[in-house]
Design a protein around this nucleic acid. Structure first.
Lengths: 122, 122
DNA sequence: TGAATGCTTAGTCATACGACTAAGTATTCG
DNA sequence: CGAATACTTAGTCGTATGACTAAGCATTCA
């Protein structure tokens, strides 16, 4: 069993390395072979290969071998789960702010009934 | 020296663990003490503490101690570098698609001069 | 004051990660 | 065919991560 069971685990983990992010940035401009990807990095080829494999496992890129050459390309829409998670967090955060705002507004108008501080809700 | 020198390294790495993402989700609803954060997780308190510390190091949360109680809260805008990076990638990708589109359009109109396939550019 | 509470530190351990070298395999070129 | 090319596999090594237990240290409450 690998360490990361979850999609997001694997994605965020794959993105947490600068070499891998550089590879993605390169591939955003177009497909490339392993050697192409290797050239700018001061690192042995097997080490770079391991990064490429991690990106592929995370579903961020796909690779295809023709003859002795392996070509790598970005997977369209691979960032979607990441962006969705971020969006969900943002949504939770703003709805909290809304509730807090309503609470403060209510405090400022003591004529009306008050509910509990919404911040303490589970 | 820690392993992650870069902001993005630390951020993505902090986000790559489900316990830590759960903590963030909890804090999106409002501040909480360490014990609060601990309760739902079947894990020793020091282990949870380590996660909280990692989130704090990444700048995703801040903590403050009053008496014997440590309160944790989300750092507003902490996701910005992550979202900017994603946005930059998207931008590279779409500009590549635009260039490719222009190339295809040109192929379909052989009357006009053709440039090289933009995909092969460095 | 003495005990309970809430966190903190210290130390251990297993596994994962990321780099390397060396050697192997499969294409392609001369 | 034989050599160069482009990856691939295997094996090693040091460090990082993430979990645990046990013990320590303030604060607060009775």
């Amino acid at each position: 069993m690998t360490k990361h069971s979850n999609d997001l685990d694997t994605l965020f983990s794959a993105l947490s390395d600068p070499t891998r992010r550089a590879i993605l940035t390169r591939l955003a401009r177009g497909p490339a072979t392993l050697s192409d990807l290797h050239t700018p990095h001061d690192m042995a080829l097997p080490s770079l290969m391991a990064h490429v494999k991690k990106l592929e496992t995370a579903g961020l890129i796909s690779t295809e071998k023709q003859g002795r050459i392996r070509t790598c390309r970005l997977t369209p829409g691979a960032f979607t789960p990441v962006q969705s998670w971020l969006e969900e967090q943002r949504s939770l955060w703003t709805s909290r702010l809304d509730r807090f705002d309503a609470y403060v507004t209510q405090l400022a108008q003591p004529n009306q009934e008050q509910t509990d501080d919404p911040r303490s809700k589970d």
